[in-house]
Design a protein around this nucleic acid. Structure first.
Lengths: 264, 264
DNA sequence: ACCTTGACATGGTAGGACCACCTTAAGGAG
DNA sequence: CTCCTTAAGGTGGTCCTACCATGTCAAGGT
């Protein structure tokens, strides 16, 4: 009765023990059923290899077929695991040159995707997103003003200059606008905050661009935005954390009102 | 030469146009290869159905086989898309009762998973995580003090009482500790901030529990933690936003130092 | 009216068979 | 000997078929 068809002994699923990392069977209400599926078993194995140090960023995972036979699972399970790990920004799988699945560490891409999806699906009210952005960028600007290295400042300044130079091209402007905020986030010297900041700004990229395109008086808007950005940069360069935080908050809220995102 | 074997006209991949939502071929460095894979085509289709309003939270997607034949792709592609959407917290697929894949909106679960994975993989320095937590929870506490409804306050108070009552059980204590912070986040009335707060606190759950277990003088620690939590609650209940923010920051930093997470 | 039971639906999994693309090495042309 | 051409192999991408496990639901008997 117990799976006689397979002589090759499938993973056996560890008898439901240690299968799921989060047991949590305490006072909380019952978890539905954490029935491990095979692909999560594969994920756990890969995870273990990484945590144990056997695999590091940049290393290549074994080919899907090998991994499947090594773990005693089907290739489909391995592929599903790869898709999930890819969605989480843990691996990147490429075909063609440098083919194979390589370990990466790109949490910001994954965060961006999640936020973009859920914002698009209207699972987050836009007002909440704006508020979160204010929080994150205030913090980023504050840290950047305090800990930003000269190289960080230069990166921010470069984006600012590009923005001013390409003010005519809405799309290019938007790119450098995004890059400007991302540069500030990077200057904060806190990768998690930077990644979250990047994710939120990045997930609104297309929304911002749409607003840019549907805005009549582009010349005035872009000039005003440049001025606001410059005020932010000046405060950061001067090391004035409070002024930087206030300037960036004013910039975000002002843009929010001007572009009329209440309806989105 | 062009896929003669399939008379049934595979998705045709939209000639690489509009396949990927993020074109971004401006001044940024070249994207490696945005080669759409079939599963992302499936994701786009589902996404479109949701955005257009044809599908809403709680609805069931067609069975995998039907979806595959409707889209003219293989079942494997559909399954990979489902795994990714599941990883993003957009759908949940269950076997057994109420079987099928249903639309959900659980961004916080997805965020938690991502953060947990990348923290476990040491892609984020613990100091950065702590700093981000301080930022988020200061904000949450501030908003909770200002906008928290009586029901929100009661939820926070309940967790506080449970924590004090079950102080002997490290695991139960940790559960209610987590729930306490989550309740504050929910009281902030900002879903995105709440979800990020929840994700970070939740992703550290097992780390916190380990620290609890390896800490010798549990009695003193739990008492101190309860006192700190109570100060946070009192400030929120009193509507004193600044005091609440300071209290929660002091609590987090103090716990961080006491449990010696510098090494993690 | 109440079980029993079997058909059906649906996700989970394995395995096989291709394809497209790239790398590599073998082998012939100069 | 060098260089180009070409064949073989590796690897992910995709589809298909078959089967299993588990649940629903209706037909039928008790």
């Amino acid at each position: 009765m117990i799976d006689v068809t397979h002589a090759s002994a499938p993973p056996a699923r560890a008898t439901d023990d240690s299968a799921r990392p989060k047991a949590r069977r305490s006072t909380q209400s019952w978890r539905p059923i954490p029935r491990s599926r095979t692909y999560s078993y594969v994920i756990d194995q890969v995870d273990e290899q990484i945590v144990s140090g056997a695999l590091g960023v940049g290393d290549r995972l074994p080919p899907e077929r090998d991994l499947a036979s090594m773990l005693g699972v089907g290739r489909g399970a391995v592929r599903e695991a790869m898709r999930v790990l890819e969605a989480y920004g843990v691996v990147r799988t490429e075909t063609g040159t440098e083919r194979g699945t390589t370990l990466t560490a790109m949490p910001s891409e994954a965060l961006t995707q999640i936020l973009r999806l859920h914002i698009g699906l209207a699972n987050f009210p836009m007002a909440d997103v704006i508020e979160a952005r204010v929080m994150l960028e205030r913090w980023s600007a504050r840290l950047a003003a305090r800990h930003g290295s000269p190289a960080d400042l230069e990166a921010i300044a470069t984006e600012l200059r590009q923005m001013e130079r390409l003010a005519g091209d809405r799309e290019a402007f938007n790119e450098h606008d995004t890059a400007f905020h991302v540069a500030i986030a990077r200057a904060s010297n806190n990768r998690l905050v930077a990644d979250m900041t990047t994710a939120i700004r990045d997930s609104m990229r297309s929304l911002v661009l749409d607003s840019f395109h549907s805005y009549e008086e582009w010349g005035g808007l872009s000039g005003e935005l440049c001025a606001q950005h410059r005020r932010v940069y000046d405060a950061i360069a001067a090391g004035d954390a409070d002024a930087a935080a206030d300037a960036v908050e004013h910039h975000i809220r002002s843009a929010y009102q001007t572009l009329d995102w209440g309806r989105v």
